[in-house]
Design a protein around this nucleic acid. Sequence first.
DNA 1: TTGTTAAATAATAACGATTATCATTAACAG
DNA 2: CTGTTAATGATAATCGTTATTATTTAACAA
Lengths: 158, 158
Amino acid sequence: MEHRIEKIKKQLHSQSYKLTPQREATVRVLLENEEDHLSAEDVYLLVKEKAPEIGLATVYRTLELLTELKVVDKINFGDGVSRYDLRKEGAEHFHHHLVCIECGSVEEIEEDLLLDVEKIVESQWGFEVKDHRLTFHGICRVCQKQAVTASSAEENKK
Amino acid sequence: MEHRIEKIKKQLHSQSYKLTPQREATVRVLLENEEDHLSAEDVYLLVKEKAPEIGLATVYRTLELLTELKVVDKINFGDGVSRYDLRKEGAEHFHHHLVCIECGSVEEIEEDLLLDVEKIVESQWGFEVKDHRLTFHGICRVCQKQAVTASSAEENKK
DNA sequence: TTGTTAAATAATAACGATTATCATTAACAG
DNA sequence: CTGTTAATGATAATCGTTATTATTTAACAA
């Protein structure tokens, strides 16, 4: 954890930004909730638990800054809010998401999977790919099982 | 065009909705600007040219309804607004987009390209894919050429 | 240490896209 | 025609985000 904070600190310094206590607190919240997809307000509330004096605007500014530096990715799952997702160490591309339309859970896929597709896009459309966003909508493993259970229970009723 | 409106009319009727004049005007605007990615306000302004008495709320309601019926897809390219994109006839999945980070242009890809990736997701993650969203960010053909021209002009100066 | 300057912050107002409310109107069955 | 329900238009309300402004902090020179 400290190692990653050090790294982000260096990234900030390289663009002559500082890692202020508020920014550090925000980064720590992101690191501690890496598996989640927090909205700005989520981050704000979590930061507030440790540093109650922090303002919402500062959280927004920090998240914007981190997005610029490509420390986090700003994503949008179609509900009204932007969410912020830490890039994995050394990840060149954005990772993918599996959004369950039943329970709303979000799973991450680290593997790239798009190398072939990107080759096609570059050769066939002449488009120089810099990054991508891929989200699958469907039914997660858990909800599939529940559907099976529910329908067999339905069977038993008859 | 009339054919496609008839089809949408039937889709509405099948869920006991009506194709009111306002809804028809909205659908016509979408059909006439199929290559664009209009925001709700864009649609509103265009509809207003033909039917000035229409209200913004009605446009929002119509777009919401069409999204529910999967006649259009609601998309978000990261600027603050939702955009609405007609599904192609018979298209089972959402089409992909190439967003140029230089000029902001948006190109569409009709081909699916993701069949193999979806197979992997289904088998390896146990996730039942219902739909997908794929957007590439990069540099379009036009901007690539301009970059070349600009840099050679730079060369000539020396 | 003290003073100076610029960056960062907190509080809050402003903004803008979207949604909710509500009175009015249109469509249509009885 | 009359009652009922869906749809609409106008507009208020909501809510995420951004801008403003006064204040604080940090860096650094004198």
